[in-house]
Design a protein around this nucleic acid. Structure first.
Lengths: 189, 189
DNA sequence: GATTTTCATTAAGATATCTTAAGAAATACG
DNA sequence: CGTATTTCTTAAGATATCTTAATGAAAATC
């Protein structure tokens, strides 16, 4: 568990065992069974979650009462509602385990402590945040360029295991397609 | 010019005069007349641009040959193609001055030097990047939730000066609306 | 293993938005 | 100024995608 986090962070900046020991103490280990929420709407998002195992989604409920998935996250990804976390605003999003999920979570206070005691952690988080920004920009460029059908085809080609682990209507929601229309697209393929 | 950058960065982390002197030397000052490009497609984006005056857009050309605007940036904002900049990949985007624009630009090499000599700059950039991430997430949530008409109404309500400084067809492009349809929406309002 | 719940499919009708093409208005330019 | 370029509008027809509603299949639960 500690090694997993260590290996992950070492991709960006090398941390010593000792630094990792300090850092690791600031995290809490949690398990969420399938369907349990890591965060619910209107609550404050107090943590950043590093997923060590499992699969979660973040989503909101739109005006019509439908769920709209904004993100999936798996092993070795971070998930949080950054707006709520940073600005202490009530979360517009839910974060929910799709499978049994284990996480290391860190509170804002503890992450601030970590930044103070291990300054180069700032660098790691700066780079990770930049990568997330690039990823989200690419994603929306892709959505803008491609039709529903192409989005679906490329998603299952790029992430074939996802189609196994996630129900189809959730993939539809993530791709911004109605489940009925996705179903009819699949018939054509 | 130096003060403008200093004031801006002090929002995030306090820098001394001396630190600012070191940092400022690593930037270059540039002026771009209206319509000139800061970056063109297929080039490498070698800089991050801090806009000190003026207004730019970043956009790409889609399959049909139409321009699609992904971002506007004004005074005290950063603009770059982060994907190209970080990954040394040819830029899919253009960045162009809509008005006469002055910038402070910094190369990747110099920014790395700056991070090394002024480590707390990492913190400032980490926070700035987080803010950008929140902004882009909110933007796309808004696009997903709102109709074309609502997007336009809220944009001109939120940024009334923009409607003056930017031609309508560019606003349409940014809002992901065809210019003809935006024109017809305006008639209704 | 039967029952309930969740998930996927089908089909018909509705609609938001785009496309094309043309002309009008505004702005820039020699 | 007058011409050229850029920007905006109008209107008709096309289409991708959604909605609703019903049925069927699969999976979960007791």
């Amino acid at each position: 568990m500690k090694d997993q986090l260590h290996n992950y962070l070492n991709r960006y900046v090398i941390f010593s065992e000792e630094e990792m020991n300090i850092l690791f103490k600031l995290f809490e280990y949690r398990t969420f069974p399938k369907k349990e929420h890591l965060l619910v709407q209107d609550e404050l998002c107090k943590y950043q979650f590093f997923i060590t195992e499992g699969l979660v989604r973040s989503y909101y409920i739109d005006e019509k009462g439908d769920e709209r998935i904004t993100q999936f996250a798996i092993e070795n990804w971070w998930v949080t509602n950054l707006d709520s976390y940073k600005n202490l605003s009530p979360s517009a999003l839910f974060i929910q385990a799709i499978e049994k999920t284990t996480v290391l979570r860190i509170s804002k206070e503890n992450l601030e402590l970590a930044f103070e005691s291990i300054p180069k952690l700032e660098r790691a988080f700066r780079i990770i945040t930049e990568n997330m920004l690039v990823a989200i920009q690419k994603r929306y460029e892709f959505y803008q360029k491609k039709s529903s059908k192409e989005r679906y085809q490329q998603m299952i080609a790029a992430l074939p295991d996802f189609s196994q682990r996630v129900p189809q209507y959730m993939i539809a929601s993530y791709l911004e397609i109605s489940p009925e229309y996705l179903s009819s697209l699949r018939k054509d393929i």
